[in-house]
């Protein structure tokens, strides 16, 4: 097998039950068409999905580990941002 890798793609599959595409894995492919075909064969052989998205991994901009405190820590102590102060009618409770 070749040791030279084609560009990396992230694969998102919408399952039969859910409404959202979920990240399911990644693969190497030369372009979008090849990535779609490879995603179909790699990730949906057992009826896992009804729709596939493929995105070049290099097009994804991610928050960094070092950003964790600045990004997420301040949300932890602001309970008033959670909608927990409303009385939910009994009929609406799940």
């Amino acid at each position: 097998m070749s040791k030279q890798h084609l560009p990396l793609w992230e694969v998102f599959v919408r399952s039969r039950r859910g409404l959202d595409h979920k990240h399911i894995g990644s693969l190497h492919a030369a372009d979008a068409e090849q990535a779609l075909l490879a995603a179909r064969d790699t990730y949906t052989r057992r009826q896992e999905g009804v729709s596939i998205w493929v995105v070049r991994s290099s097009d994804i901009h991610a928050s960094q580990f070092e950003d964790e405190d600045a990004f997420f820590e301040p949300a932890a102590d602001k309970v008033y941002r959670h909608p927990t102060f409303y009385d939910v009618p009994e009929e609406l409770k799940l």
């Binding site: 190497h28 075909l37 490879a38």
Partner: peptide, 13 residues
């Protein structure tokens, strides 16, 4: 034996 992993899966499929 296919040239790369994704192809190997697709070919076997």
């Amino acid at each position: 034996h296919s040239p790369f992993l994704e192809e190997d899966i697709a070919m076997a499929n």
